[in-house]
Design a protein around this nucleic acid. Structure first.
Lengths: 354, 354
DNA sequence: GAGATGTACCCAATCGATTGGCCGACTGAA
DNA sequence: TTCAGTCGGCCAATCGATTGGGTACATCTC
């Protein structure tokens, strides 16, 4: 029934060997010895003929046969909350790029930030026999990482960190401090924080960095002003609405741990008649490509997302090689724009009102 | 050196057979016959024991060995311009979901909309022996699809279509007409179109649908008002700036074939002192999650991105099964919001000025 | 000239799963 | 008693690549 299927039936080692009249093992060895002078694999002349024919027939080894034999697949699995989150999508671009450079392929799956899906997707990846995993969605209290570690599965974390495990992330605490310093220096002394999901180190670190810095500067941010929320526009909008309803007056500034949440919050503020950058300052995080192009350009803490993704692959390679590696944290930078511009503060109605 | 590596060494058919004292082929057959009464595979009793042990040892067949034998990999390759484009990321989510439901895995790669990368990535996918391809980045004049077809590679197109090949897309022409009708009924008689890349059927169809509809209604849109642009915010911003410089006055409305381009254009208008939704109406396309949450909510043509992705998988299954299938076009809907709200037009300064 | 050392390859097992054939045992009918 | 027809399973080839272990012959050494 389904015998031939693919028309041109890929050329195999056997084909090459037959055509050259030598043994398949000889062909295999020649094609493996990168060093020109094949280690006793074959005579230079034979080696040349083998290579030439392989080239001409555009031979490419069957990856399944190879994997079956070598127990390596040259593939890595990547799990993210969702690729429709621009932040993760960008990191994944870095992953794919770096993986391709070292001739690895990647599988991605979305876990939707659900613990059960994380497990399911992980198992699917492992069934596929990936050589290693990159997890972009660890939860703070995740038991999964410990399980994987005890099962000796090579993996690294990306985007979010987890104490004791190798990870490639932004230095989120430093990022939070950058935002804190910025708003402070703009004259703000009250802030609402849209803090992200409580299980994500990103939101937690960014928030604690901010809180810690303001505490150093002399202001303790009340717990009521720290609002957990999903990392998307809808979540940010709700967060913004809650901030507007805060007892004790609306703060003069808002720090959202994510650009999309910031955008949602801006929507809420505008709907309430406030002008962002004038009546209320807003700072986001990640400096996604949207931030600079918004109707009111958004001040944001820039994290090197592509780099983080690329670095995760580098780390994973080292883990797979059996090395001991530890966490990598990339330094963020602040991109100041109109949503928290000096001009806004100077004329700030909300500031005076606060 | 690298002998054991993975500690718990996955259990194989042979292991099961040995433990049960029967032949591995018997085990294989039992595990294959979905029908409870295995087709002459083994006695009900044996079958039960096999299944029970497989369960207990949590046997999962080695995918590489299976692929090697069956010449099928249960994996499909997906190529998109870039996953950091929310539209494609969302479609890919649909693809991943649907693929997982039929127990397929997916590989994604970014081609960055470059012809050379499209070829390279395609070849990598084929080397990985994917069973089929989903291309989300075909160019209007692509020779690649013809090559693939002549090589008998099963594939379908997604997002963008190409005459003569199976595809899962939005009915972009209809979408363009929806936008055209809407702006017309709001009283607009002049428009600038930010038309997207000239090689993408999405932009072309959306534009031609719009133009065609206005022509029916009695207005011919001058070619100078149709501006090609990248599908991102930066591209939209430049498009918006060009619209502001158009000879013969700034049009009262703008149709951007993509939400991100629309957002960029809105930024340009605002920078020029225009209020979107008041001085100038803007309509986007795709109704991405951002549109509704923007400071000025964006009117947008909603395309069922997730569905398009899911349907692409369905189509591909049929292509792989050897069926003849043709293009699938999903009907879009219009989501009217403030950026083109009636109120805006009634008081429209720009409208009167135009 | 015996032994040592290389050179240039070939053999065959192996990875794990699939599958067309085949075989022995038992049943039932002629 | 015999023959055909299941039933229940086993055998072995096969997919394509890798690799430890040869082997045959040539050359070199003392």
């Amino acid at each position: 029934m389904n015998r031939p299927r693919k028309g041109p039936a890929a050329v195999t080692l056997k084909d090459l060997a037959a055509e050259l009249g030598i043994h398949v093992s000889t062909v295999s060895r020649v094609l493996h010895s990168d060093t020109d002078e094949a280690r006793g694999a074959a005579s230079p002349e034979t080696a040349r003929r083998v290579r030439e024919l392989a080239e001409r027939r555009s031979y490419s080894p069957d990856p399944h046969a190879t994997s079956l034999r070598t127990r390596k697949t040259r593939s890595i699995g990547v799990i993210v909350p969702r690729l429709s989150d621009l932040v993760l999508a960008t990191m994944y671009e870095g992953v794919e790029e770096a993986a391709a450079e070292s001739d690895y392929s990647t599988f991605v799956m979305n876990s939707h930030d659900r613990l059960d899906e994380q497990r399911v997707k992980t198992e699917i990846m492992l069934k596929r026999r990936v050589d290693g995993l990159i997890l972009g969605d660890v939860h703070a209290d995740s038991a999964l990482v410990r399980d994987l570690a005890s099962r000796q599965v090579p993996f690294v974390l990306m985007n979010r960190r987890h104490p004791g495990f190798p990870s490639s992330t932004c230095d989120d605490t430093a990022g939070g401090r950058l935002a804190a310093d910025h708003l402070w220096s703009m004259g703000h002394r009250s802030v609402g924080i849209i803090a992200g999901e409580p299980y994500a180190s990103t939101g937690l670190d960014r928030t604690s960095g901010f809180v810690e810095r303001w505490r150093e500067l002399g202001v303790e941010i009340p717990q009521s002003h720290i609002l957990p929320s999903p990392f998307d526009t809808a979540g940010g909008r709700r967060g913004g609405e809650e901030i507007l309803r805060l007892g004790g007056g609306v703060p003069t500034s808002v720090f959202a741990v994510n650009d999309f949440a910031a955008i949602g919050a801006m929507g809420a503020f505008r709907a309430a008649g406030l002008t962002v950058g004038h009546d209320i300052a807003v700072v986001g995080f990640n400096d996604t490509s949207l931030a600079a192009q918004l109707p009111i350009p958004l001040t944001s803490v820039r994290s090197p997302m592509l780099e983080i993704g690329r670095a995760a692959v580098g780390l994973l390679h080292r883990v797979m090689a059996g090395e001991d590696v530890e966490a990598l944290r990339f330094q963020p930078e602040l991109a100041v724009r109109e949503s928290s511009a000096p001009g806004a503060v100077e004329s700030g109605r909300a500031l005076r009102a606060g």
